[in-house]
Design a protein around this nucleic acid. Structure first.
Ligand code: SF4
Ligand code: SF4
Lengths: 166, 166
DNA sequence: TTAATCCGCACTAAATTAGTGCCATATTCT
DNA sequence: AGAATATGGCACTAATTTAGTGCGGATTAA
């Protein structure tokens, strides 16, 4: 099934929330408060935030009153960045060379790129690379500017109806 | 890591090959010949083809001289169709309702759609649904018309250079 | 009848994802 | 100084998914 991992999914949620919070007040957001707000396990939440921090998407301050902040403007952070850090990047085919810079950790398969033995003669390799780039660019185009749906939490039915989610 | 499974990846290759073969002669293509042509395991290849057949993308004839055919014109079959059958579809988030029709088999989680407890109040749900639809539509737009790179196998270097794959 | 070919299912192994926990370190407040 | 609040790093286990194999049965053409 083609999907974001939960880590990436929640990571997007957390980044979006922090972006939204910083919009209202320039205070850091703690892992504990986010976990509580979204009913997530504290350790899982903390892990995701730590990864995002190591990946350069967030930065943090410790101690009382500390927490996480965006390290760039919301429109400078894309879904691709988050997926890259939390999910090991986008590599639609198995012969896709390690793109962009794909933060360490997941780079165990950095063996020159092609893991598929038939890549030299594969007749769909280049069409699929085009598809790979299409998806990658699409995710890069989706930034955290206006990614937080502030209208939710007010009147779920009305909102969902307006968005045609039914 | 966001990627096609090997099954989907090879499935795309196989469908593309069959589309290309039917273009040249209207004969069926056997699992054995495809496995040999691409140095794949016969049983794995056969399994993928069987799934594609059950999923309505291919149809088959048995017995000597039999094999697989496309069941629609190449431009009527999209990558999304293949991914749907072989990979259980595209559901970028965990709260994505079962889209299109997502062929049985993988439909174990058909419990009304949302598997994420916070979906009612999630502020990124609808933006992410939009992303989901973006990717889904993109894959639907990629059909098997001209998806077979016939120029490969002739002069790998020249071809790859032309396609800017380096 | 024999050989080619798909069909359906059941099974195992490997890899990835998901999730937890502990202790160290930094910062702030009293 | 000491307590309370936070993140940082690491190591670990469990659950799920992907990957891949195998066999006996049905169908068809020569
Ligand atoms: S070479 Fe062809 S089959 Fe192998 S991974 Fe690349 S695209 Fe897929
Ligand atoms: S509700 Fe929000 S967090 Fe949960 S799966 Fe949907 S988008 Fe992701």
């Amino acid at each position: 099934m083609l999907r974001f991992s939960r880590k990436a999914d929640y990571g997007i949620l957390l980044v979006a929330d922090i972006a939204h919070s910083m919009d209202e007040s320039p205070k850091g957001v703690s892992a504990a408060s986010l976990a509580k707000k979204y009913s997530l396990s504290k350790s899982f939440t903390a892990n995701i935030l730590k990864d995002l921090s190591r990946g350069g998407i967030l930065f943090s301050t410790r101690g009382k009153g500390g927490g996480y902040f965006l390290s760039k403007a919301p429109d400078e952070i894309s879904l691709h960045d988050v997926v890259d850090v939390l999910d090991g990047g986008v590599k639609m085919t198995h012969c896709t060379p390690s793109g962009s810079f794909t933060s360490a950790e997941h780079d165990a398969d950095a063996d020159s790129g092609d893991c598929c033995e038939i890549s030299e003669t594969c007749p769909v390799r280049s069409p699929l690379q085009r598809v790979h780039r299409g998806i990658q660019h699409y995710l890069e185009s989706q930034t955290f500017e206006n990614f937080y749906d502030g209208s939710l939490g007010k009147d779920p039915f009305q909102v969902r109806e307006a968005l045609e989610i039914v």
